[in-house]
Amino acid sequence: MDHRKASLRDEEVIQIYRTMYLARKLDERQWMLNRTGKIPFVISCQGHEAAQVGAAWALQAGSDAVLPYYRDLGVVLTLGVSPRDIMLAAFAKAEDPSSGGRQMPNHFSDPTLNIFTQSSPTGSQIPHAVGFAWAFKVRGEQKVAFVSFGDGTSNQGDFHEGLNFAGVHRLPVLAFVENNTYAISVPYHKQVASKTIAERAQSYGMEGVLVDGSDPFLVYEAVKNARERALEGLGGTLIEARVSRLVPHSSDDDDRTYRDQKELEEEKARDALGKMRTYILDKSLIDDAALEQLEKDVMDIVNDATAYAERAPYADPSTVKRYVYAEAE
């Protein structure tokens, strides 16, 4: 889709590309650090960036409540989380602002940006978003709660319990499913009985929207419209973005046993990041030299974040008993 149809300015499109590229490069760097034994775990955004950046572009950073899931590097970078913060969490360093290294990496949170952590049980963040949305509604605040998760997670009880609640009270919840057609190794057709996840919205009295997640502008438009509807008091939306997972589930997974490698190669060839790069050049939004400079600047940022986080100290083991209870301080 042409970005002007979504009322996006040319400069915004460059920023969208830059954020997608930054997410990809930070992610690739983490795999390298993992394979060289420097960080314990990686779970990737690769293949989801267009959908993530497009969706987050439509949110009000620092105002809307955002409850991302572990792949959402593109979402949190768009909202303003810094690359250094990402790397501090990857290395589990004391200075990691999300939890001081206490949680898994990619359980993003940042109180200054209204980003709230998920935790390991998939989908447990969905009812939290409903709580935010209830608060916004009763206080008459012009805010939405955005919560994301994968296709497999849409089978969890918390998905049903949360969205049903949101539907009953027409709460401003934007539930964003990044459907990469796998939940670790189990493919979509063994995971979800309905043709789309979007159609599950029907039973919650919500709008359900299916969107091509390789096009950030389409996703932006879908989330923007959903946000406006929610703010008008028309209730939440379940938005399903079709994306590709270009790497194994996590750094602990080997996808060769369950994934058709030819199909994967085809998906990689259709990589949304490459498509976006071509788009900005074709539309002459940027010239070759400026684009190369932009990409070089991003690599400098990735290098800086890596070096900074690697040097940073670990949490002091004597702090392990802190914060269990409020009185413990």
Binding site: A65, F116, S124, Q125, I126, P127, H128, A129, V130, G131, F132, A133, W134, A135, A145, G157, D158, E161, G162, N164, F165
Partner: peptide, 12 residues
């Protein structure tokens, strides 16, 4: 589960 999750969201 929704009651618990809702409570946490509200507490935030």
């Amino acid at each position: 589960s929704a009651i618990g999750g809702l409570a946490l969201g509200l507490a935030y």
